[in-house]
Nucleic acid binder design. Structure first.
Length: 991
RNA sequence: GCCCCGGUGGUGGAAUUGGUAGACACGCAGGACUUAAAAUCCUGUGUCUUCGCGGACGUACGGGUUCAAGUCCCGUCUGGGGUACCA
């Protein structure tokens, strides 16, 4: 019987689904293991061959762990809210729910074909009200929380209110807005409800606040920093501008330090942890206040202005050691003191500058990042140590949102300050020796301090300590830590997302009660903003109001809301009373292995860690990191194929004196000819010229007859390349029949071959429809079967590495499966022997068990495929069809190629799925060799090998090698200086 | 600019702890079977040199440590990814 993969695979897929073979048990004696793939967004294009790469790897681990006696949780679901479905809805008017369902159905069909061992009973969809009910519930918990710096935890807001009622806010140590006023208990108790709400808002972990946001007009929504790439939106590539807006945000910054510290406990790749560290961006330094010098013209102003001018300018610096090098202060254009400090002479210039700077979009700002702009305010501060006057400038290289929005500029030791100073001719004061300030600033944190009063002679490190001590002693500021991480904007002005469970009564936002959840996404007539710019939810029917009268919040949650806790829902997917019961989340704990793309480094993977820590703080779960181990699978790029077509026309004279240009028949040339032409440029000297001439000469002869002319000149010759569908290219060779049959290329039927084949050129590009280089898993499964697809995707190379999809080697793995099949069906019918295996056969088997186990444990799937091949090659050579060998081998193979393994397992007489079989134990005894093949080298270069008994001691080995006749040849009569014998490894003689 | 990860035959890649570089697979060449093709099987295949035995070279480049380096150290080049006025 032939290896009929189609029948085998569809049979077993049905069997697994019917018997719920891979349903996880919520408890039991077995240890648990949780393998998770990153949540897919079901896009309209379906899966291409790159998507399943990680799923195959995680499936191998899941199946392997089952064999190893673990209770495995391996679920799958869909992150089904999102922009593409909504954009499509706007264009077509079709409800995003419908598109989403269609896309999910297509995904499911494709996933099922690959034979994954998912527990589909636990499937979740973020757009499902039973799911987003709990996303909303978590939002409410976050809304009802504040961050207590004393306990270093999020706590219920009631503990904060109790504190306010007892002591006001003077003793509270909380993460909150910068500008909270202090109040006493008496004041608090006298405040109105609105005032209470406003004050609490400054402390809530989910809060409504005014902030600069990234506004994307084309998408009609705000975006988070991680949703913007190169100044344009990640989805769609539209421009983004800065806009001051009232927005729901999450106080993720409260967790900055814990998010940073937690990384050290995680088994994630270093590059991913680095990316998060950079994104969190911790920097240690000090705050420092500069006293503003009263400018006579400003002093004569109003009393109010006078009071405000007495404000100090506070800066944040990581280089307090360079304080004597300060030669000016720069404020961000948005800095609140800019107006007040600007003298009348400078008013016009400053106002113009500030307006222009504020209106610049993110993209413009990035485009002329090297353009230095700024303006002088006319005011000065006093240097805290020297008492000298230091001018105050405004410059947009200073960011309003970071630190205090003001910097002390030390041009000698900061490259940005340096450029600014050079451009505007400001002084550059050297305070750390070692640089050449004519050329550039000296930013390195090493060297001795000079020109710095009490810091002179100190190293940078010591100077920093001393400077901070002095600043603190004089009350000018204090040591401080700053993070680059910003609070996460949580509202989106879009339709297709979770409604934020909040309503407004008398302009005060209230969270819904838990028993009012879910707040179901209402129907709307159009998926666009309203005429006055309100989000689409404002289009909902007039009855969509809380208690029939109060407006609900009109913005929806961002894409990352639903994916920030989905790993918990899988633990208890059907629970209608809780997001997940404590009992089950205690049982499943955290994800043991998480596989997904590195593009989520600073988005999803940061948010999910944030929510996990939050839920832990409130005692809902026991763990504070979502995933212990994480692997980033590499991207699979497309490998485009090109054909090369000659464009050739001749320009000739007609007998009547006129001229005419006539194109010649278009001819395809194979890769070799194209390369040759590219190299020498003159087609007439190329090797294909003769053949080409044969093709076109007919046409030229015809022209001669038609037009009665012989004068051809001004030839125009070029070769261009065209994308050709990669699915009709096999090992770079074009299937001419299919190519000619394809509509697009119908007209060009002339080919110049090489070795009777048409060879395409190839290039690595992104996989996309327009480049004709998309390969779907369906195509491969159809042609070779899913087991081949699974093996081949793994065989391609290390999981983490990015690589182009190239089917050149796929026949190799397919051949391997056929060869395996032949071990059982060597004679044409199923034949298996119950004989005792030989020593050699046992060695082959146990070598394989050992390698496969090691390979899976270190996620090196490509090498395990090679090891299987070696094993089957050896067993084929030994003509081995013994049950004692083949049965354990099938179990080893079943995580990789489950369908064929199940089928042969059944043929062997088993009635239960192979997935229930225990992984074979490896026995060292079968691997011990009697002999060792010692390579003998001279000066490190191997010259010959000697097969010696393994029991020999190093001394004995040395004696034998010395006595060997070949050794004498290489020693040439000399005594070796030294002989190194590494037991069972190598012999090296130094001559 | 800064940070991270790479660079090994014609190709994908292997070499897990410093111990025979190139496993396995593709491709290519030759052969067997076949009327023929497909499929299958066998042999060879890093480069240079030699009729052959053999010899020399060889893991981006230049140095170093070591009996021994793809592997460790220093410097350079180069590809990919992340990030960017974050004070």
């Amino acid at each position: 019987m032939e290896y009929n993969f189609k029948e085998i695979e569809s049979n077993w897929q049905k069997y697994w689904a019917t018997n719920k073979t891979f349903a996880a048990k919520d408890g039991g004696d077995k240890p648990k293991y949780y393998v998770l793939d990153m949540f897919p967004y079901p896009s309209g294009a379906g899966l291409h061959v790159g998507h399943p790469l990680g799923y195959i790897a995680s499936d191998i681990v899941a199946r392997y762990k089952r064999h190893k006696g673990f209770n495995v949780l391996h679920p799958m679901g869909y992150d089904s809210f999102g922009l593409p479905a909504e954009q499509y809805a706007i264009q077509t008017g079709q409800h995003p729910k419908i598109t989403t369902e269609q896309n999910i159905a297509r995904y499911r069909e494709q996933l099922d074909k690959i034979g994954f061992s998912f527990d589909w009973d636990r499937e979740v969809r973020t757009s499902n009200p039973e799911y987003y009910k709990w996303t909303q519930w978590i939002f409410i918990q976050i809304f009802n929380s504040w961050y207590n710096k004393n306990s270093n935890k999020a706590e219920n807001i009631s503990t904060l209110i109790a504190e306010f009622e007892a002591n006001g806010n003077t003793k509270v140590n909380a993460v909150c807005d910068e500008d909270v006023q202090s109040f006493t208990a008496a004041q608090w108790n006298a405040f109105s409800e609105k005032e209470h709400s406003d004050i609490l808002m400054a402390y809530r972990m989910a809060y409504l606040g005014v902030a600069y946001v990234n506004w994307c007009p084309q998408l009609g929504t705000v975006l988070a920093n991680d949703e913007i790439k190169d100044g344009v939106s990640e989805r769609g590539g539209y421009p983004v501008e800065r806009k001051l807006m009232k927005q729901w945000s999450m106080r993720i910054t409260a967790y900055a330090q814990r998010l940073l510290d937690g990384l050290d406990t995680l088994d994630w790749t270093e590059s991913l942890k680095e990316a998060q560290r950079n994104w969190i961006g911790k920097s240690e330094g000090t705050s420092l206040r500069f006293k503003v010098i009263r400018h006579p013209e400003l002093v004569s102003g109003s009393q109010e202005m006078l009071n405000q001018v007495q404000h100090d300018i506070e800066v944040f610096t990581t280089r307090p050691d360079t304080v004597f090098g300060v030669s000016f202060i720069t404020l961000a254009p948005e800095h609140e003191l800019v107006d007040l400090l600007t003298t009348p002479d400078n008013k016009a210039a400053v106002e113009a500058y500030v307006t222009q700077a504020k209106n610049r979009s993110e993209r413009e700002r990035q485009a002329d990042i090297n353009k230095i702009t700024g303006v002088f305010t006319g005011s000065y501060v006093e240097h805290p140590f020297t008492g000298k006057q230091v001018p105050i400038w405004v410059g947009d290289y200073v960011l309003a949102g970071y630190g205090t929005g003001a910097v002390m500029a030390v041009p000698a030791h900061d490259s940005r300050d340096y450029s600014f100073a050079k451009h505007f001719g400001l002084p550059i004061l050297e305070v750390v020796a070692g640089g050449d300030l004519e050329k550039e600033s000296y930013d390195a944190k090493e060297g001795k301090l000079i020109n710095s009063d009490f810091l002179n002679g100190l190293d940078v490190k010591d100077a920093m300590k001393k400077a901070i001590a002095e600043i603190e002693k004089q009350g000018l500021g204090k040591g401080k830590v700053n993070f680059r991480l910003r609070d996460a904007v949580f509202g989106r002005q879009r339709y297709w997302g979770e409604p934020i469970p909040v309503y407004y009564k008398n302009d005060i936002p209230y969270a819904l009660n838990e028993n009012e959840l879910p707040l179901v996404l209402p129907e709307v007539d159009k998926y666009l903003p309203t005429e006055d710019g309100e989000p689409p939810l404002a289009r909902a029917a007039a009855s969509w109001k809380h208690e029939g009268k109060y407006d609900y919040e009109h913005s929806t949650m961002p894409g990352w809301a639903g994916s920030s806790w989905y790993f918990l829902r899988y633990m208890d997917a059907a629970n209608g009373n809780e997001f997940a019961s404590k009992k089950l989340s205690d049982y499943w704990q955290q994800v043991d292995l998480y596989i997904g793309g590195s593009e989520h480094a600073t988005g999803h993977l940061l948010y999910v860690r944030f929510w996990t820590k939050f839920l832990k703080d409130l005692g809902y779960i026991a763990i504070d990191e979502p995933a212990k181990k994480l692997i980033n699978q590499g991207m699979i790029q497309g490998l485009s194929a090109f054909v090369h077509r000659i464009h050739h026309s001749v320009n000739y004279s007609l007998p009547d004196g006129g001229r005419k240009v006539m194109p010649l028949p278009s001819v395809h040339v194979s890769k070799k000819h194209y390369d040759e032409f590219k190299l020498n440029g003159d087609y007439k000297t190329c090797s294909f010229y003769k053949e080409y001439q044969n093709i076109i000469s007919h046409r030229i002869e015809e022209l001669k007859i038609e037009e009665k002319t012989e004068q051809f000149n001004d030839e125009n010759f070029s070769i261009s390349k065209y994308n050709v569908d990669v699915n009709i290219v096999d090992n770079d060779v074009l299937d001419i029949t299919k190519y000619v049959a394809s509509k697009q290329f119908n007209d060009y039927k002339h080919f110049i071959y090489e070795n009777e084949k048409y060879v395409c050129t190839r290039e690595v590009e992104k996989m996309s429809k327009s480049k004709y280089n998309v390969v779907t898993p369906d195509d491969i499964a159809e042609k070779f079967g899913s087991d081949t697809l699974r093996l081949y995707e793994m065989f391609l190379g290390p999981l983490e590495q990015s690589k182009p999809w190239n089917t050149n080697g796929i026949t190799g793995v397919h051949g391997f499966l056929k060869k395996l099949w032949k071990l059982f069906y060597g004679t044409g019918t199923f034949a298996i022997s119950n004989d005792e295996p030989t020593k050699g056969e046992l060695k082959t088997l146990h070598k394989t068990i050992k390698k496969i186990t090691e390979d899976i444990e270190r996620f090196s799937f490509n090498t395990s495929i090679s090891n299987f091949m070696i094993c089957v090659n050896e067993l084929t050579d030994a003509k081995c069809n013994k049950r004692a060998i083949l049965e354990p081998l099938l179990i080893c193979l079943s995580p990789y190629a489950p369908h064929i393994a199940e089928e042969l397992w059944k043929q062997l007489g088993h009635t239960e799925s192979i997935s229930t079989a225990a992984f074979p134990d490896f026995n060292e005894a079968f691997l011990i060799d009697d002999n060792v093949n010692y390579p003998v080298s001279f000066n490190g270069k191997v010259k010959f090998t000697l097969e010696l008994a393994a029991t020999l001691t190093t001394q004995e080995v040395e004696a034998i090698v010395r006595a060997n006749e070949q050794t004498a040849k290489y020693l040439d009569g000399k005594e070796p200086k030294k002989v190194i014998v590494v037991h069972k490894k190598i012999v090296n003689m130094v001559v």
